Simulated scan of single mutants.
Amino acid sequence: MRALSAILAALTMAVTVAAAPSAEAVDPGPADDSFYVPPAPLPPGAPGDVIRWRPAKIGPPKTPINETVTAYQVMYRSTDALGQPNAVTGTVVVPKRVDPAAAPIVGLAAGTHGPAFRCTPSKMIDAGAFYEQPAVNDMLTAGYAVAITDYEGYKPDPRTTYVVGQSMGHAVIDAVRAAQRLPETKLSKSAKVVFRGYSQGGGAALWAGEQQPAYAPDLDLVGVVGGGVPADLTQVALQLDGKRGFGLLMYSLSGLDTAYPDLKLDTYLNDAGRALLAEMRGDACTMELLLRYKDKKLIDYTTSSPVLTPPWLARVAENKLGGTPVAVPVLQYHATNDDLVDYSQAQALRDTYCSKGVKLTWRTQATDHITLVYQGNADAKAFIADRLAGKPATTTC
Rank of each mutant, 00 (worst) to 15 (best):
T16N: 07
I51Q: 10
A40F: 09
E24R: 10
A23M: 05
Y72A: 06
S34I: 00
R52T: 13
P44F: 02
K57H: 15
S34R: 10
A40L: 08
P41D: 09
T70C: 06
M13K: 13
D27E: 13
D33C: 04
P30H: 01
A25I: 01
A14W: 01
E24Q: 12
L42N: 07
W53C: 08
P44W: 01
K57N: 14
P38Q: 06
A31P: 13
P39W: 00
P28T: 06
D27V: 06
G59C: 03
D27Q: 10
I51D: 12
A18T: 09
T68H: 15
P44A: 09
G48Y: 05
K57D: 14
A56L: 03
P64H: 01
V26D: 04
D49W: 02
A10W: 10
D33R: 04
V69K: 03
A71E: 07
M13N: 13
V37F: 06
I51G: 10
G29S: 02
G48Q: 07
D32M: 02
I65C: 14
A10E: 13
A14V: 15
D32L: 04
A19F: 03
L42E: 09
I51E: 07
V69G: 08
A18C: 09
R52W: 08
P21R: 00
P43K: 01
E24W: 03
D27M: 04
P60W: 00
N66I: 02
P55C: 02
L42I: 07
V15T: 13
V50P: 15
A14D: 12
A10T: 12
A31K: 09
A10P: 12
A23S: 13
K62T: 13
S22D: 14
A18F: 05
D27L: 08
M13F: 10
R54Q: 14
P47G: 04
D49K: 00
A71V: 06
A18W: 02
T12L: 09
R52G: 12
F35Q: 10
P47E: 05
P21F: 01
V50Q: 08
V50S: 08
A56K: 05
G48E: 10
D49A: 04
T16C: 02
R54E: 12
A14Q: 12
D32N: 13
G45T: 03
M13P: 14
V50Y: 05
P44D: 11
P47Q: 03
P60Y: 03
A40V: 11
E67C: 07
T68A: 15
A14M: 03
T70F: 02
T68S: 15
V50D: 14
A10R: 12
G45M: 02
G48A: 04
D33Q: 02
A31M: 05
I58C: 13
L42V: 07
A46Q: 15
V37W: 05
P55E: 10
P43F: 00
P61G: 06
T12A: 13
V26Q: 00
V26N: 00
A31R: 11
S22R: 10
R52A: 12
F35E: 11
D27F: 01
S34G: 12
T70L: 01
T63V: 09
V26I: 05
K62C: 09
G59V: 04
P44T: 01
F35W: 05
S22T: 13
A56E: 08
A20W: 06
A40M: 11
P41C: 06
